[in-house]
Design a protein around this nucleic acid. Structure first.
Lengths: 229, 229
DNA sequence: AATGTCTTTTAGGGCTGTCTAAATTAAATA
DNA sequence: TATTTAATTTAGACAGCCCTAAAAGACATT
């Protein structure tokens, strides 16, 4: 089994990778809080393993092999199942679960993974709305878009929020914005300006900066403002 | 915070230590599945840390300092809380909990420790009957003795069993012997021979070899065969 | 096409925790 | 007490993962 460090690299590559599936040395170094030189060293080692979890080309970053992707998804499955478990069974708030899960994801067995999943009724999303990869490596489909890409006037529902920053999560909690919350985008200031929203069943008016809005994803609105999915 | 390896050493010293509080190099090597030379090296390093978790004298093994003992108890508290949690909340059988807890004990935060304890109602013993150290480092008292030290004719109750060997635990399960089970020692063959027992409410007759019996501890019987505690 | 900047890689180390082989010390026995 | 045996320690090395400093490559701009 891969070491914790290796699993962290695979997860990071998966999370950073865009359409071409590549993650740059610098972005990995940032994400993992490690010097760029350390990333280079690790990628070189991983690329010559057998089976190799990553493909690596000098100066062109890393890409996960099928094998590496499988492993990354398994670790992410662990992470999200644990987050949900802590939230549902042990009263953790959604801004507390990430750090705890970050350590536990490396320590649980297949057996514990299975029992947690069973206990939670084979859930499809974690407390932040992120899909939980299935055991077979497929991901429950979820069509959503960034709140930033929403057109003015749209009514929709929060699908998920980024789970990395507890500060932002606490802030969103205060605003009453969690997965499932309804939103009505009433106005958007130009030049990456703030968004005006009506939030939840009471249509509370809130103003959201673009950095925070970028962490929120919503279900695709229909023409008349209703949401699908 | 100490590394996992260090925590494992401290726990091992605590568990091996007898009356004088010492654990030999060889016994630690055996318990930790590590070469004796590795133990020597680690003990030397630990002894010069500040604060030092162990006192070490060449050729005379290691002893925990107050500081080290505190840490060992904390790790053991984690271990036993996790064992009980897996047993009660996730349907683990008592022979399955040890290995899982062995990894998780290093990964949980203070916060998670507290919530688990709370969820379980601040329990005093784990599924094998071992006392769970309290947060302040004290240990719930429990007067018991080895089944091997019981006099013939005594009636008593199982207090706890060793948790290291899943095979033995499964065997004891089959025999219906778990913490709380009543026992009547009817006969003992000489020269470390087997023990004849009547087990449980139905007084099922069972024969137990001395190696297995040595893993079982029982409450002190009173003169007439009743048990205290 | 040359320059300068930014990214990435190479080179050389460090720390932790492990190992084997050889040397030493302690304990048991003659 | 001398000798043998068993336990322990020293010496030297290695794997994994990290670091800094310096060199090299990629890329945008002039």
């Amino acid at each position: 089994m891969p070491s914790e460090a290796v699993d962290d690299y695979l997860k990071a590559i998966y999370e950073i990778a865009g359409d071409d599936g590549r993650a740059s040395t610098a972005s990995l170094a940032r994400k993992l809080s490690v010097a760029p030189a350390s990333v280079t060293g690790m990628l070189q080692k991983l690329a010559v393993r057998n089976p190799a979890p990553v493909e690596y080309e000098k100066h062109h970053g890393a890409r996960l092999s099928d094998h590496g992707k499988q492993r990354a998804l398994e670790v992410i499955r662990h992470h999200r199942l644990i987050e949900l478990f802590l939230h549902r069974m042990l009263g953790y708030s959604w801004d507390e679960v990430h750090d705890e899960a970050e350590r536990l994801e490396h320590a649980i067995s297949e057996q514990l993974e299975d029992r947690i999943a069973e206990r939670l009724g084979d859930p499809e999303v974690d407390p932040h709305g992120h899909p939980i990869p299935r055991k077979d490596g497929t991901i429950p489909p979820r069509r959503d878009l960034s709140l930033l890409d929403l057109f003015v006037g749209a009514k929709t529902t929060v699908s998920r929020v980024s789970d990395n920053d507890p500060e932002i999560l606490r802030y969103l909690s205060e605003l009453g914005i969690t997965p499932g919350t309804t939103l009505h985008l009433t106005e958007r200031a130009p030049f990456d300006g703030p968004l005006m929203l009506e939030v939840g069943p009471d249509n509370e008016k809130q103003v959201l900066g673009p950095r925070v809005a970028g962490e929120i994803r919503v279900l695709p609105p229909t023409a008349n403002g209703e949401t699908t999915g």
